[in-house]
Design a protein around this nucleic acid. Structure first.
Lengths: 142, 142
DNA sequence: TTATCTGCAAAAGGTTTGCAACTGA
DNA sequence: TCAGTTGCAAACCTTTTGCAGATAA
């Protein structure tokens, strides 16, 4: 999904593409890691995207609502990663926090009798190839 | 898994079975819903289990660490449900917040090349049979 | 006896809200 | 033009911590 499509999708929700949001969206789209709101804010600052923490929260809220961002609860912290619309399967590296989308869908176990399933979530957690190599050499994170 | 086994498991972690914890554990074991820490505290009060909120947090922490409780992030809130050790698949009713364990394990999608998977999480979200019936009659929650 | 646990109160963090100024459509 | 957005500060909530007294083992 490219930026054009994303903006289109957001426009349908009375969403205005401000300078701040455009810069933040750019950053999201090309970052394959999950970060907490505060961390996204930090990353943005570092990339010279001047934006308030409140605005980060508000954008994450909108993106999550339309399915473009996915929250992950890891060790008590809530991280957000950008992801394709309606795609809920991920591999999360617990060391460097990178998130990779999985396109294969597992055969979901049968729901209990009579239950109606609205959505499901399959997340794999582990160590990515790069972090395995790095940790062999004693390095931390990337 | 019965209470005896649970206490055994917890004992291995230098865990002491105090009056407060025993009462709270009893409550957990027979409750098939997820609640936030504050809600567990409330439920406990209602059942005449006199216990501080801090203690609820501390017990949830211990239980989560040994795999007897599972946190769920739903609409920005963190809920905890009691569950069998090392059993990570669930059906969660988004209306009444009941949680059912699923014993069938799906074929997990292949991890990205070179990644080592440490654990995975499969959660189904929807509406349980009872809530479907209730909502047809205009009732809310149970 | 003593390491662990409890509840309270306070501190610390994280998230949301109110508001006046600003801006995209 | 004006509904939606921004950043700040304050409010709000959730979670953690310090501590003195209690207690399981």
């Amino acid at each position: 999904m490219n930026k054009r499509d994303i903006v289109e999708l957001l426009h349908q929700q009375k969403f205005r593409l401000t300078r701040e949001r455009e810069a933040l969206l750019d950053l999201f789209v090309r970052t394959d890691k999950m970060y907490t709101p505060a961390q996204w804010h930090e990353v943005a600052q570092r990339e010279n995207v001047r934006i308030g923490l409140t605005t980060v929260y508000r954008l994450l809220e909108v993106l999550t609502k339309v399915g473009l961002a996915s929250p992950f609860l890891v060790e008590g912290n809530i991280y957000y990663a950008f992801c394709e619309e309606h795609h809920h399967h991920h591999f999360v590296c617990l060391q460097c926090h990178s998130v990779e989308d999985l396109y294969e869908c597992p055969s979901i176990p049968a729901a209990p009798r009579g239950c109606r399933i609205e959505h499901h979530k399959v997340d794999l957690f582990g160590t990515c190839e790069r972090c395995q190599h790095n940790s062999q050499r004693g390095a931390k994170h990337q």
